[in-house]
Design a binder for these strands. Sequence first.
RNA 1: CGGGACGUGGCGCAGUUUGGUUAGCGCACUGGUCUGGGGGACCAGGGGUCGCCGGUUCAAAUCCGGCCGUCCCGACCA
Length: 477
Amino acid sequence: MSKGLPKQSEDFPGWYQEVVKQAGMAEHGSARGSQVIKPYGYALWENMQRALDDRFKATGHENLMFPLLIPYSVLAREEEHLEGFSAEVWTVTQGGGKELEEPLAIRPTSEATIWSAYSNWIQSYRDLPLLYNQWCNVMRYELRTRLFLRTSEFLWQEGHTAHATRDEAWEEALQMLEIYREVAEDILCVPVLAGRKSEAQRFPGADETFPIEGMMRDKRALQCGTSHFLGQNFSKAYDVKFLTDQGEQEYAWGTSWGWSTRMVGGTVMAHGDDKGLRLPPAVAPTQAVIVPIYKTDDERTRVLEVATKIKDGLVGNGVRVKVDDRDQHRPGFKFAEWELKGVPVRMELGPRDVEADHVVMVDRVTGEKRTVATDSAIADMASVLNAVQKALRDDATAFRDANTHEAATFDEVREGVAAEGGFWITPWCGDAQCEEKVSAETSASIRVLPLEREDPGGPCLVCGNPGTERATWAKAY
RNA sequence: CGGGACGUGGCGCAGUUUGGUUAGCGCACUGGUCUGGGGGACCAGGGGUCGCCGGUUCAAAUCCGGCCGUCCCGACCA
């Protein structure tokens, strides 16, 4: 653990890299672009994973596992899909030291293998819907990598569903988008815009892509999760037909949806400050830490005894809590370290506190320090954690709102994006050429369009033709 | 993949321009004493062959070539 972080305002990328490293979340693997997720980062991932998985199960989905390797010819069957991914695909050409007859692609995503299996699994409308999900690793060849945000290999969840009707598939895609929104906002405290992608930004092979987009503390956007309505594109490419109750052959309707370890980085960047991480209590690996303070051995014994009692009480209430009884560090050092690691609540317990039967409680989000009776420190911890959760969400929401602007003209967006960053909402005609022009000149892209088209209230910012969309532009990760 | 910077104990760096004895420093680490309510002090220790490969030379961390990797900006992307 080294001392000090670059200031966010002076060097945000440097701050991010350092905080991820110093907090013990991840580091680079020995192959280019790979990453080692360390226990503290992995614990955060497990907690968000659980929040998602519980919701998937509650909505009737089952987990399964498909192979990492996909025969190249299988991947190539959906043209648009292959075209979209070809630059990112890793291919295995040898096995056992010999050239393979057919190269194997390492999955960049699994639509291809899964739909080729679905063609065997689906015969009748009675076989539908298929509501499956897998937690797995995928690989994409990447030229520029950053821990969590973009690495060659990453962990994610990919849901793949097949339905008998268009409407049902459409509803499924939106339902999963809503689950992502809920986990992002309620669990991770990251306010997001949920909506549609423009055609240019759509997933290769999808008819419609629905993202949730959050704002990071450098005012850039991060796509936090995506749900796709696949129409019949994959069922046609992989020949997934079923017999309807009318006795007719029809192609199945599909969705797919994913959320990745990228969101660990998103949580870091959406909430962190110059002291380090600020983790949402709902997913923080450690929700509360007790720092004992003592001079003599006798004091140490007495303080640790009470600290352990408080810990046991909290554990009994389901709180993830630690007593930091390391003797090689002094309290001040521990305070700074737990702040760096973003633990939501810290309790300081010294001889004077033990004497008075109270603890000093410090909130990582507001920095507020107060003295609390030992009993209520245990009994009220759940509501304290809820309050921290809310404070973090309110803070992130206020930040996002303060950096979201309406604009009418190209000039406003160009200057706004360059000078201030953040989200810029404008009327847009829906034409890809106008979109491309803005992106080329500002390096901002359309992050999201409203789910239901809204009156943009003016002409397109580029061509001046009637606006048909309210587009939100931003620089993105 | 294009432009820029860089690679020296676990981490951060100096030394490289003007090759030359046992490669230094801070932090971290180990043992000890004093300490302990916001990143402690002192004493004594252990650890590197200078990203990798090759070349030039009496001699290479230092010069030359190739490769690998990292960071920043850009294009592409979860």
